[in-house]
Design a protein around this nucleic acid. Structure first.
Lengths: 210, 210
DNA sequence: AGAGGATTGTAACTAAGGTCACACTAATCG
DNA sequence: CGATTAGTGTGACCTTAGTTACAATCCTCT
């Protein structure tokens, strides 16, 4: 396991910290589609990503979903970090986008590590920075882009996260992530296909160009 | 000045930290409408709010604006905090909503204080927490609410920040904050007036109920 | 008082996106 | 193997929001 930590965080963390993480962390493996964190959950561990990808989304009162961003190897869920400190509850939902390995580090270590390890401080703040940017991008998408553009952006992200130009999903799932209706997505996908940017298959969208 | 710091942060910070802030901080007074931070600005100081309010907004490539949230006495701009650590550039614009006093603390102190003062660590993370929540609220508004609801929410916030049921603004300014057109705002305001929730005056909107 | 700008009101129209209905096809399962 | 379900395609329609245009009013400055 130490090797996996080194793979993902070796270039970030100082030696002592890697030792501590190895000692305190517990490996957790989750399958695609598994729910890791739900709204209102109390956070007791900091999840450090070792492999795979996790989808972070926001849910409204009626249970409607909206994709915020993906986190991958070397990332940590910033939402979790704030929760750790403030002992508040999760405001987001985290679902495994693919089979994923995370290292669960108990919250108690957080405060001490912040004092002791400058690499931990950097990492934590770097994470916040990234996540803030990603939230701002979400806001930009919603405020300044139309559905056509948002869908293209979405497909791009799916290709990057899935490391595959063939995106395995259904129109309905895309619609949920973008908080719109299936019909709207089918309509725009069709127009993207006519523009030769994608090819639509059953349960798959093949991205040609981006 | 020490008294002002105590007023805003006395209950948060330990004695030594208050002394340090007093020593290192420089008072800055800005007038309503003044630009404090613009997109792409490099941040060299952490602004601690002493009085007044600041409007934080996001700007797209075409210069279109969108209100994100307000920060007030006892708050700190979380965006600034991330910038301090990462030495990156501002992704938001900060404009004084009213006459405002901020204490500018040079960035260099950040890392040391994080090690030394647990109250500073708590404060910094608490700030992140709040700001994260506020960003999520912005996202919720955009994704899940229609313009009518967003306008009501907006007026509520303006009343709270301005501490006055009489909101001093124009339809055009409201439209800019919500990233829509003046006509749309006038239309919805009229309907809110018909519902007896507000009274429209020239340059003022009187909020009756919410 | 009169000119000019800023602010607001409103009608008419357009566009984007959401809804409904239904047809069609591929996969699955008893 | 027929029945069922999930996924997709599409026309018709509705609603919300954005656009254009113009009138009316108020405010300021000369």
């Amino acid at each position: 396991m130490e090797q996996k930590i080194r793979d993902s965080y070796g270039y970030l963390f100082e030696e002592d910290l890697i030792q501590e993480i190895t000692k305190k962390g517990v490996l957790k493996e989750v399958k695609e589609g598994d729910l890791l964190i739900d709204i209102e959950d109390t956070i007791t561990n900091i999840p450090l990503m070792l492999s795979g990808a996790i989808k972070i989304s926001r849910i409204d009162e009626e249970g409607d979903e909206l994709l915020l961003y993906f986190i991958e190897k070397g990332d940590v869920c910033a939402m979790t970090l704030t929760c750790c400190i403030g002992q508040s509850k999760s405001e987001i939902r985290a679902i495994a986008e693919s089979d994923t390995e995370v290292l669960m580090v108990p919250v108690e270590n957080m405060d001490l590590w912040l004092q002791k390890y400058s690499s931990w401080r950097s990492f934590v703040f770097e994470s916040y920075n990234t996540r803030f940017s990603e939230m701002l991008q979400s806001i930009d998408s919603l405020a300044f882009m139309n559905m056509h553009e948002r869908l293209i952006k979405y497909l791009r992200e799916k290709v990057i996260v899935g490391k595959d130009m063939m995106v395995n999903t259904t129109h309905q799932k895309v619609a949920s992530d973008l908080h719109t209706s299936r019909v709207v997505i089918s309509r725009i996908l069709k127009s993207l296909e006519r523009e030769n940017k994608i090819v639509i298959h059953r349960n798959n969208i093949q991205v040609l160009e981006f």
